[in-house]
Design a protein around this nucleic acid. Structure first.
Lengths: 228, 228
DNA sequence: GTCAGTTCATGCGCATTCTCGTGGTCGAAG
DNA sequence: CTTCGACCACGAGAATGCGCATGAACTGAC
């Protein structure tokens, strides 16, 4: 999962970024409205944290531009407590959530989790796929109740796949959401990680769709070949 | 749009209910946790406003029970300003949003609107043609509920045909949409794929219109008169 | 240095796709 | 009605290149 943080206060930005990274997210940073707009417009993020008061370009304007361009990723805006009207303006501009400053970082984290989860269409903080359970709250995964030991990239891969269960996820998509901005994409890293993950959770869960990508799905509903 | 308000403070409940009704929603009221849980479990709501501090059953518990039972309607929780940990717990229990007391009623209204709007975006994208269902989001197709195993080109073909149901689609058109570059046109690959697809989904669905191309259509619908 | 995690390179196996050839079907003209 | 030519279906083999396993090289943390 890849997140963009747009916040001009350097300390606050770093604080948010660090916490998110610790929680296993890939994070890009922007320190003014223009940079933020540019990144959010060009890169595929799973969520954005956007300050309202920004140099160069106002947060609301940034958000409106994104929505006008058809961007639908969840956006959490940060507002000052006394600027009540900002919240309404932000929500009307297409924000999915807001937090008022000052805030507890844990709260932002929880809301980001909820937004990402919601965007994928899951109600609770646990996603289940056959024997595999993903605890988005604790960044843990279990197979048949046994805790899985995953490296950070393996976890990110599993997490992204489980958030998009039943859908085919392309390699490019995976690379873009597992790594930040610049990454050499002509290599077979993704295949390697898929292979390793399969070894840990079982081969049946991640189906490879030749030419398109991978799809995670509970087995049992085996796709039957209708070649009668 | 039908909304449930679970709030034990009678005045606050009525205030919310009135505002929502004025805005054109249908509103049900509950004044304690058990009643709220019962209603939310049995009736289909488009959104729920849920207070955390409730007699009989805690709001968080109510929410967890709903989510555990598979209810996915958007829930907005109300918390006291100083109980920030409640917010985190609520969000992790599956709340979609929260508002801290005291609040402006317009704000609650704006957020309910946002929640309903967002929930509407999760409608699955499916095209149906007779026994065939195409899940464009998951790159999957089923015939009579049985999952089809399609190669990527077969899927692209089916997808294009189903997006233009009832229309005659020329070979050239298909080639142009199934391949990126210009493609050696004097080959019969399209025929081959149509043949393979027919084998998998049944012959009746793809009709060949001699000299023009193919047309996909649910069988049983009168299509003979078009050839006079 | 050691170790865990990650990236890169290679070669093989095989699903997928393309080509080709034959035979069948349709429609119009004689 | 018959005949002819164009169009189409389909099977089978050939060629392509994708996906995977494997192991070695690389990196950073301690």
């Amino acid at each position: 999962m890849r997140i963009l943080v747009v916040e001009d206060d350097v300390n606050l930005n770093r604080q948010l970024t660090d916490t998110l990274k610790e929680a296993g997210y890939v994070v890009d940073q922007a320190f003014d409205g223009e940079e933020g707009h540019y990144l959010g417009d060009g890169e595929p993020y799973d969520a954005v944290i956007l300050d309202i008061g920004l140099p160069e370009m106002d947060g609301i304007t940034v958000l409106e531009k994104w929505r006008g361009a058809g961007k639908v990723m969840p956006v959490l805006i940060l507002t000052a407590r006394d600027r009540w009207s900002d919240k309404v303006a932000g929500i009307d501009a297409g924000a999915d959530d807001y937090v008022t400053k000052p805030f507890h970082v844990e709260e932002v984290l929880a809301r980001i989790r909820a937004l990402i989860r919601r965007a994928a269409g899951h109600a609770s903080s646990e996603i289940v796929c056959g024997p595999v359970r993903l605890d988005t709250k604790g960044s843990k995964a279990t197979v048949n109740g046994v805790a899985l030991k995953l490296t950070s990239h393996e976890f990110r891969l599993l997490s992204y796949l489980m958030h998009h269960m039943g859908q085919v996820v392309s390699r490019t998509e995976l690379v873009e959401h597992m790594y930040d901005q610049d990454f050499d994409r002509d290599s077979n890293t993704i295949e390697v990680f898929v292979g390793r993950l399969r070894k840990k959770i079982g081969n049946d869960l991640i189906e490879t769709v030749r030419g398109l990508g991978y799809r995670m799905q509970a087995p049992g509903m085996v796709s039957k070949d209708a070649k009668s």
